[in-house]
């Protein structure tokens, strides 16, 4: 196990207007993450799938301690890092990295890409300046940005989106991390180049034996890349299982809806399940099962009690009263 979360929670306080503050004392919260327990095994890719507003990006930032959790625990490589601070946390960062969705925004526009990739090496005193330079050239070649000397001196603005994402990957990989959060790494990349970026990430996984938490809204992409899939809905995990069982036997109605919403070219299959409405906000989470207002199989119990994540078969968990 490289990473484990136990009942992790993150509530963001809602800023109230002046008038509201006069009349109510009670604080309101957006529950971005509301009790999530997941584990990422060594060398595996766990996909975190959900719509925007499900809290998946927040979870990614929480486990990297880029934001502080409200409650719960985060265990990284056998060590509780929930309350790690300052220098200790900073030193830990060489082992855990992040790749962002938007390669236009995640690189410093005023820093040469070679310098950007080199920076982690300097920050963590991994290599001298000269060694670091060589390591960067090496890395640039690995991610396919050749001639590497030429690319070293370029600024992000003269690179295409795909090339920038390669830079972001190189930067994340240069410290040989054990665990990488990839937050929608291909959703802004052209279709014909997506597979090459995913391929690159798989190659690093293989070479460095690292683990990914792969955050995506695209089930099709997660099917291609991951070992296991966790489906998130409104701040909670509703289903967790290996890729095969999630696609062959999706148990939660939400997972079924997600799968059937993916546009598929021929043969035009019947839509198994369509949902009405949209994901509600994290301020007013419905009572009981948070999915029940949109659920076509809603039962009485669903609006009263909240289902917990239960094991249905080996490695396949679901939080739904249909399966308890």
């Amino acid at each position: 196990m490289i990473l484990e979360t136990k009942d992790l929670k993150k509530y963001f306080p809602v800023t109230k207007s002046f008038i509201e503050r006069l009349f109510t004392r009670e604080m309101k919260y957006v529950k971005a993450i509301d009790g999530v327990s997941i584990d990422v095994r060594k060398g595996e890719i766990l996909s975190l799938v959900g719509e925007s507003g499900s809290g998946k990006t927040t979870l990614g930032k929480l486990v990297l301690r880029l934001i502080d959790p409200t409650d719960g625990r985060i265990i990284f490589d056998g060590r509780d890092i929930t309350y790690l601070k300052g220098e200790e946390l900073r030193r830990l960062r060489r082992h855990m990295q992040i790749i962002y969705q938007d390669p236009y925004a995640s690189l410093n526009p005023r820093m040469k890409i070679g310098e950007s990739i080199k920076d982690p090496l300097i920050i963590h005193n991994i290599a001298s300046d000269q060694e670091a330079y060589k390591m960067v050239l090496n890395m640039l070649e690995k991610v396919g940005l050749t001639p590497s000397e030429h690319f070293y001196g370029l600024y992000p603005r003269s690179l295409s989106g795909g090339q920038r994402q390669r830079v972001a990957i190189a930067r994340a990989m240069i410290t040989n991390p054990k665990f990488v959060v990839a937050d929608e790494p291909v959703s802004m990349i052209d279709v014909s180049l997506r597979a090459s970026i995913l391929d690159l990430m798989l190659r690093f996984k293989h070479d460095l034996h690292l683990s990914y938490l792969f955050i995506t809204h695209d089930l099709a992409v997660s099917k291609y890349i991951s070992d296991r899939i966790a489906v998130m809905y409104l701040a909670k995990i509703v289903e967790l299982g290996d890729v095969y069982s999630i696609f062959k036997k999706p148990l939660h109605p939400y997972t079924q809806a997600l799968i059937s919403a993916i546009p598929v070219p021929y043969p035009r299959r019947e839509k198994k399940l369509s949902l009405s409405g949209e994901i509600p906000s994290g301020i007013d989470i419905p009572p009981g099962c948070r999915f029940h207002p949109r659920c076509p199989f809603k039962m009485n119990i669903c609006s009263e009690e909240e289902p917990t994540l239960r094991r249905i078969e080996e490695g396949h968990y679901v939080a739904c009263f249909l399966h308890q």
């Binding site: 990297l64 880029l66 900073r90 030193r91 830990l92 960062r93 060489r94 990295q97 992040i98 962002y100 938007d102 925004a105 995640s106 690189l107 410093n108 526009p109 920076d119 982690p120 920050i123 963590h124 972001a168 930067r171 410290t175």
Partner: peptide, 13 residues
């Protein structure tokens, strides 16, 4: 900005 958060994520002081 994201690139500043990214700098924190690589452990920059």
């Amino acid at each position: 900005t994201i690139f500043v958060e990214a700098a924190r994520a690589i452990g920059a002081k």
